[in-house]
Every structure is written in C-alpha cells, then in structure tokens.
Amino acid sequence: MSASLEQLREARARGDVRAMIAAIPYARFLGLDLELADDELRGVLRYSDALIGDPTLPALHGGTIGALLENTALLQIAWDIDLVALPKTISFTIAYLRSGKPRDVYARATITRQGRRVANVQVEAWQEERARPIATAAGQFLIQSAPRR
C-alpha cells in the first residue's frame, strides 16, 4: 500500500479534510484546497494571478478549472469509499459554461454510481452562485475498495 494512500486513509479516519489535500504536491502548486461545508466535501481553487488564461477578460485558464473538478472528484471517492488503492481516472469530460472570474472557485462532486471496479462521478464548479455553475464535469474512475466485513 502506498504511503500516500495510508496518509489519505488516516486523514479520512480522523475526518481531517485539510490533511487529505496536504499530501498532494500539485494541490499546493495550484492552490487547491478542501473544506467541509454543511457536511459536504467542497473543493476550492484559491485565486492567484498565475491561474489566468486570458488577461483581456480576465478569465481563469480552463485547465485550472479542470484540475479543480478532477481533484474534487478523486477526493470525494477517497472520502466516501474505503479504498485499498488510489482511484485512477479512466476518462474525464469537462463542459465550460461561463468564463471563470479572477476569484476563488468552489466545486462539489457526487458519486452517481459506485460499482465494484468503477465509480461514476459528476462535479460542478461555481463562483458567486452555486445555481450558476461555471463548469460541470463527468468522470469514470477505476477503484479498488476494501472488502466489506
């Protein structure tokens, strides 16, 4: 079992969402965060000027919003399911609905189906209003869950 998975499982057992994301170097690089809001896991992309993809608008780089969506989906799986290996993304599809403004972005993932080997996840990202998402995504992930006792 990988050290990262062990770290993730311990953080999950303690309910420590910050520790779950602290283990991921790329999350620190990009400014990805995780918080619990109303008992829901919520991904956050903290704004910085390095995230800009189009300064004329200005708008966030599509890749950074994609990274937030995928990261939130992965951590939702790790939060909901007792895993024996880190999930692997099979395929991930992002629909960009509105341009991302230069401010924080939030994301919420829902596991729509959990099979024995595959988890289907839907994610949406928003800024001012949750009802006005700036992007949505659907992903399929390979999972290995711990046997049920």
């Binding site: 990988s2 050290a3 990262s4 998975l5 283990a23 991921i24 170097p25 790329y26 999350a27 620190r28 690089f29 990009l30 780089h61 599509g62 890749g63 950074t64 994609g66 990274a67 937030l68 995928e70 990261n71 992965l74 880190l86 993304t89 991930f92 992002i94």
Partner: peptide, 18 residues
C-alpha cells in the same frame, strides 16, 4: 510540484488537462 501521488511521483491529472 506537478505530482499527484508523492509515493509514486506520478503527475496529477490536472497537469495533463492544462
């Protein structure tokens, strides 16, 4: 700093997305 899993050193999917 692009790594997703520090144990294996494999890149985070978000880097490939960008």
């Amino acid at each position: 700093e692009f790594v997703g899993d520090p144990h294996t050193g494999v890149l985070h999917g978000g880097v490939i997305t960008s």
